[in-house]
C-alpha cells in the first residue's frame, strides 16, 4: 500500500516519462485505499458501540458490511460522512481518513465533506417535493442557480439511475407518487447529482420488492466504475452478488474482512462461517 502511494505521487518517476505514465499513475491512485479507519472506537455516552477497528477500504470497489443487528455496522458506516455527529452522547476515538485526510479534524467543513461522501438510506426518503426539486436540491444549496445547468444535471442524474424514461413527463410532480423502488433510485440520483466520489448505502434495498432490488443492485454494480461504494446489507446473497470485498462485524468488532469470494466460500473465522451459513443472526 505505502509503495503504491509513493509511486502514485510521481516523486521518483523520471520527468520525461511523466506524460506517458500519467495513466498508470491515475490507475495507481485509484487503486489506493480511499477510506481508512485507524483504531476507531465509538461511544454513546458510556456504551462502546465500536470497539477498536482498523480497516482500509479500496477505491472504486464495492465493499459490503454484514453482521447481525446491533453489531455496529451502520454506526461504522455513518462515521465516514459524520452522520453520527447529531446523535446525543456520540464520541469518537481514533481516526477516520478519506484520501489520507482525517475528516474529524477541527477545521474540516462537514457540509463540504458530505458533498464528497453521499449517502443512501434504508427507507427511500424523498423530500415531499417534486422529482425535479429532489434531484436539484443538493446543487441548489451549493448556491447554483443556473436553470439550464440544473435541468441538464437533473436529467443526467436521472438517466444514470435509469429513471429518466419513466419520469420525464412527470418531472414536476411529487416524488411521493413514485413507487418504492423508483423512490430509492431517485434518492440515488439525488446523491449522484452533487458528484460525490464515495457513496455510502445503509441497507438500500431492505424496504423494496425483489424486482426493484434487482434493479438497484444492477445500478450499484454499474456505479462502481466511478464511485467507491460501501454498502451495509442484511442480505448475504446480495453481499455475495455485488460486492468485491466483504467485512463481517460482530458486537462492535471487525471479525473478518476479505475478498467477498473468499469470505463467503472459505471464511477464516468460525464466527463468520456460523453467520453466513445462517446459524445465528
Amino acid at each position: 500500500m505505502e509503495l503504491q502511494f509513493t509511486l502514485g505521487t510521481g516523486g521518483r518517476v523520471n520527468s520525461n516519462k511523466m506524460k506517458k505514465d500519467k495513466d498508470t499513475i491515475d490507475k495507481t491512485l485509484k487503486r489506493k485505499h480511499k477510506l481508512q479507519a485507524k483504531e476507531v472506537k465509538v461511544f454513546y455516552d458510556d456504551f462502546m458501540a465500536i470497539k477498536g477497528i482498523d480497516m482500509n477500504i479500496r477505491a472504486n470497489k464495492i465493499t459490503a458490511f454484514i453482521g447481525p443487528s446491533g453489531c455496529g455496522k451502520s454506526t461504522f458506516l455513518r462515521l465516514f460522512n459524520r452522520m453520527n455527529d447529531y446523535v446525543d452522547g456520540f464520541r469518537l476515538e481514533g481516526e477516520i481518513l478519506i484520501d489520507g485526510e482525517n475528516i474529524y479534524k477541527k477545521k474540516v467543513n462537514v457540509e463540504q465533506l458530505r458533498k464528497q461522501v453521499g449517502m443512501v438510506f434504508q427507507k427511500p426518503n424523498p423530500f415531499p417535493k417534486s422529482i425535479y426539486e429532489n434531484v436539484a436540491y443538493g446543487l441548489k444549496i451549493q448556491g447554483i442557480k443556473d436553470k439550464n445547468f440544473l435541468r441538464q444535471k437533473v436529467e443526467d442524474s436521472l438517466k444514470q439511475v435509469g429513471l429518466w424514461n419513466e419520469v420525464k413527463e412527470d418531472i414536476n410532480k411529487s416524488a411521493l407518487a413514485l413507487s418504492g423502488g423508483q423512490q430509492q433510485r431517485l434518492c440515488i440520483a439525488r446523491t449522484l447529482a452533487v458528484e460525490p466520489s464515495i457513496i455510502l448505502m445503509d441497507e438500500p434495498t431492505s424496504a423494496l420488492d425483489p424486482i426493484s432490488t434487482a434493479k438497484i443492485e444492477e445500478l450499484i454494480y454499474e456505479l462502481k466504475e466511478k464511485y467507491t461504494i460501501v454498502i451495509v446489507t442484511h442480505n448475504m446473497q446480495q453481499a455475495g452478488r455485488i460486492s468485491d470485498y466483504t467485512a463481517f462485524f460482530y458486537m462492535g468488532e471487525l471479525i473478518e474482512y476479505d475478498k467477498s469470494k473468499k469470505l463467503f466460500t472459505n471464511p477464516e473465522k468460525k464466527q463468520t462461517e456460523n453467520y453466513i451459513t445462517g446459524r445465528f443472526g
Partner: peptide
Amino acid sequence: VPKSIRDASFALGASKWQTVSQQLLPA
C-alpha cells in the same frame, strides 16, 4: 417531519439552517 428528511438533507451537504428553512419549514 420524519427524521429521514433531516438525514437526507444533511447527507447532501445542507447546513442546519438550509435544512430548517428549505425542508422542515415547508414540510
